[in-house]
Computed example of a mutant assay.
Amino acid sequence: MLDVTSPDGRTFAERLRAGEPCYSLGIRTARSVDFVRMAASSGYDAIWIDLEHSTIPLDTTAQMTATARDLGLEAWVRVPEGDFGVIGRVLDGGASGLIIPQVETAEDARKAVSYCRYPPEGSRSHNALTSPFGFRRMDGKVRAAAANRSVFLQVLLESAHAIDNIDAIAAVDGVDAIGLGLNDLSANLNIFGDVRAEAITTLCRRAIEVGAKHGKLVIIGGLQGPDHYRELVDLGAAPYVFAAIDTDIFVDVLDQRIARWRAAISA
């Protein structure tokens, strides 16, 4: 398995650690690999496919992640809440990273690590011929070590209870990044949508401090635009940019097109 790297040979995580903004495109509605090709042509660095909030099937997911990796894009998948069994399948299909939602305890994080990595680092089931290795036959130990080294694991914290346990979660070996989902987090605090509330900022600060302590990236989603992004990156959050998601793109363009036609016809 080859890591997804930039032209200068750095991995995605290394670029984020160096403070280089990396732009991602979320996919919930699209079903064609052409959308991945468009993302690559437009200069995106990554895609992430949201299986938690969509009906995208696994075969489509595999085609998209394999295409992304062929094009040099990072290919992450957010699995449905509690569906650890799907992890090995999306990794076999070509995903380079996993986003595990609703992680609330260190035990949850250890379980995620176990499903993402082969023994002795985890308990992922072996499959000799997989897309990430071009379906080549390889020595099993070499393949397992390469796969374990390459997969990027982000655990997503979306509740006050999870933040209470963040130190223990961040200490788990095999967790590469702590993610905060501000929409669910604000809902959990009964201030849904107020993602710039002081209570939310305080939790973000706490996560960033703990991430730095344990050497983990902190990726924050659900931001209110570039200014909010800059504030949190200045505090130490990873410069991972949720630049767009396909549902927003489609609805925005549809709104613009019909508004333009209505204006033209009315005139």
Rank of each mutant, 00 (worst) to 15 (best):
V253R: 15
E74S: 09
A95V: 03
V33S: 13
G82K: 07
I169M: 09
R230E: 06
L51H: 02
I47H: 11
R206W: 00
M1E: 01
D34P: 01
L2D: 12
G215C: 06
A30P: 00
G9L: 13
G97W: 06
D184L: 10
R136M: 04
R69G: 02
R262Q: 14
I178Q: 09
I220H: 07
V241M: 10
R28S: 12
A147S: 13
R230F: 02
N183A: 10
A244T: 10
D173P: 09
V195H: 14
V253F: 10
S266C: 01
R110G: 05
L156C: 04
P101G: 08
R17W: 07
G93N: 02
E231T: 11
R117Y: 10
R17L: 06
V151H: 11
C22W: 08
S266T: 06
Y44L: 14
V241D: 08
Y23G: 02
V36I: 13
A30Q: 08
G93P: 02
G222E: 11
N148Y: 04
I249C: 13
F242C: 11
M138D: 00
D92H: 11
D70W: 04
L129Q: 09
T130E: 04
I49N: 13
V253T: 10
R10G: 02
R37T: 02
K111D: 00
F133D: 09
A263E: 11
V155W: 02
R28C: 05
S32K: 06
L153E: 07
Q256Y: 05
E231W: 05
D194C: 03
G221N: 12
G222H: 10
G211E: 05
L203Q: 09
D83M: 03
E231F: 06
T61Q: 04
G179I: 03
T55W: 03
T29F: 12
